[in-house]
């Protein structure tokens, strides 16, 4: 990120804080805007929100860790969502998840050090007929077997 872009983002954040300042429950919308501005809500962003809205940092951090829509670290270039809904789970999605984690050497909820992939667990994706299902970005892969994982990942590793 160039410095100018970075400054823009922080200005946008300050704008969001100003717009919601004084509102009841301002923290949620400001965190949502911060998430979309930065793609995640790092420490310095949370501190700015805490100071701007005059709420304790502890509260900001508590909300940011409560809702899965907020990320504390940058998301990877590609976001993998493995469905752990009932149907997928019964059909072995945990094994698919484990295989992805092993192949990428990353824990669930985290991003690979090269910034390429973020691995998430998701609720039902509404494609139970294709269970077990994963999504990579907007692409859906169904009826997956763990052994198919390396091949699929290879497409994104180029």
């Amino acid at each position: 990120m160039t410095d100018a872009k970075k400054v823009d983002k922080y200005q946008e954040l300050q704008g969001a804080i100003k717009r919601h300042h004084g509102e009841r429950g301002a923290l949620m919308p400001v965190l949502q805007e911060a998430q979309s501005i930065f793609g995640y809500v790092p420490q310095d962003v949370q501190i700015q929100i805490a100071e701007g809205l005059n709420v304790p940092l502890t509260e900001v951090y508590g909300v940011a860790t409560f809702y899965s829509q907020f990320a504390l670290e940058p998301r990877g270039e590609h976001v993998i969502g493995v469905c752990l809904g009932t149907a997928c789970y019964v059909k072995g999605s945990q094994k698919v998840m484990d295989r992805i984690a092993q192949e990428l050497n990353v824990e669930v909820g985290h991003t690979t050090p090269d910034g390429k992939f973020t691995l998430n667990a998701t609720r039902c994706l509404g494609a139970c007929g294709l269970a077990p299902v994963i999504m990579i970005d907007e692409e859906v892969y169904g009826r997956l077997k763990p052994d198919e994982v390396p091949g699929i990942l290879a497409k994104y590793q180029a």
Partner: peptide, 19 residues
């Protein structure tokens, strides 16, 4: 002072300081 609060969700909720 507010240096501790609930962190996380559900079974994994714990009382802790940010980060």
């Amino acid at each position: 002072v507010s240096v501790i609060g609930p962190v996380g969700r559900g079974f994994k909720t714990k009382i802790a300081s940010p980060w």
